[in-house]
Write a protein that binds this DNA or RNA. Structure first.
Lengths: 235, 235
DNA sequence: TGAATAGTGTCTTTCAGACAATATGCC
DNA sequence: GGCATATTGTCTGAAAGACACTATTCA
């Protein structure tokens, strides 16, 4: 039955059974690639990650990292970002490749590879209902080994935050220096000295005043800054 | 013809044509994974990389990065290291995953993914004749986009050398401090102050004296050091 | 005027960088 | 002794860290 199917629908961009069998002889496996996205944001002064609830077994009702399989003709980045488009209706985000997992299930030979992407978004509203933000300090019951993957992602984020401006990915385009400092403090999980933070960040010459002030609350208004160029810099 | 073949040899660890076609409908592609290894060493006070000469077209006689396709039941690391075993008869090396390339050939949809691994080996003898060490400053004519990949690998190596002990991967287990300094100088492409280098590296507390001295040449003998633990540390 | 956050002055400690001296082997 | 590399002493200036002060808004 399925042989008929394969004859009719064989398209140029999919491998033939013949090729796969030949490759098997030569010790070459065929795989699907799961593009997994660790989508982080800062909400309520906490680092949060976006997760999805499983509706099918196995591990039904447990939570998982978002992911999407790679399709022919798409790049990895396009695939990772298309997730953002679905969820937020926007693709403004910092995006970075983290790690490819390819550990096989020794018994059957696993046919799924997983590439992890790190995405930082300014706090956004979710359009889908099966998704939810969770503080990384307080994750729900997670399926498979997803908890460890998140831990690894947090670690990389922290390392990167130590010597780059990566946390800028959490902020709007224009921001107060105290907002930037707060973002660092949340990610690094330690408080910073205001005087030293401001001196350091301004001495790098990567920020510029917008000229606009933000008046909010019963206190002195703050200058709004923005980065001179997109992307992250070393600090 | 090949349908018959597929019926006879269908094994449990390879995907069926039926599954691949179903996946195609759902926007899921199937790929082979090339595990590419950037194998670096230091020879004659230069950073060198191990390359292979192509014997088939296209790009015949041009040089390429070493690589091996991932097979079922193997891990990525195992695959990368098996290359070392073939070449040097040993797998002692520093190994680190760098980057997954998945940019498609827009016309046909590329079916090969490439994961780049970085490997540092102490200067070793090659068993195979179609391989050759090349200084990274003086690469031969290279096939495809391999030159850019090597450039990227060198950059990552340099970045990593700036704040870790990664260059230890080039040294034998026991070494002189001046050897270690030399390795840093070659990778970072700048000379370092002897006094400051020694103070810094010793203050980290990651090295210990072996008690052995190396007498070589008409000068004061040097203490041999070794790392307290395997792997790389921050500096 | 007081509460709250923005922004600055300045001292101390630490560390990177530079230069130079002494130590110990072999010939 | 002379050469070559190993090892150590010490000065200087820049940056990190800590503490305390002044500035501006609103209620």
């Amino acid at each position: 039955m399925f042989l008929k199917l394969s004859m009719n629908k064989l398209s140029s961009d999919i491998p033939s059974q013949e090729q796969i069998l030949k490759d098997r002889q030569k010790g070459i496996g065929w795989y699907v690639l799961n593009v997994a996205t660790l989508i982080f944001t800062i909400q309520e002064d906490r680092l949060k990650i976006l997760l999805e609830k499983r509706t099918a077994s196995p591990e039904e009702r447990k939570w998982v990292i978002l992911g999407k399989f790679l399709d022919y003709g798409k790049t990895l980045e396009e695939t990772a970002q298309s997730k953002l488009q679905e969820i937020f209706g926007s693709t403004r985000a910092y995006l970075e490749q983290l790690y490819l997992y390819g550990d096989p299930d020794k018994k059957i030979g696993k046919k799924v590879l997983t590439i992890i992407y790190l995405l930082l978004v300014p706090n956004g509203k979710i359009k889908e209902s099966n998704l939810q933000w969770f503080p990384v300090q307080k994750l729900p019951v997670m399926a498979f080994d997803n908890k460890e993957i998140i831990k690894y992602g947090c670690q990389r984020l922290q390392n990167k935050a130590t010597n780059t401006t990566i946390v800028a990915g959490f902020l709007p385009k224009k921001f107060r220096l105290s907002e930037l400092q707060k973002a660092y403090e949340i990610v690094l999980e330690k408080s910073l000295n205001k005087r030293n933070f401001r001196t350091k960040i301004l001495s790098l010459g990567i920020l510029k005043k917008t000229g606009e002030m933000e008046k909010k609350g019963a206190h002195r208004p703050a200058m709004l800054y923005q980065f001179k160029k997109e992307g992250i810099s070393l600090i």
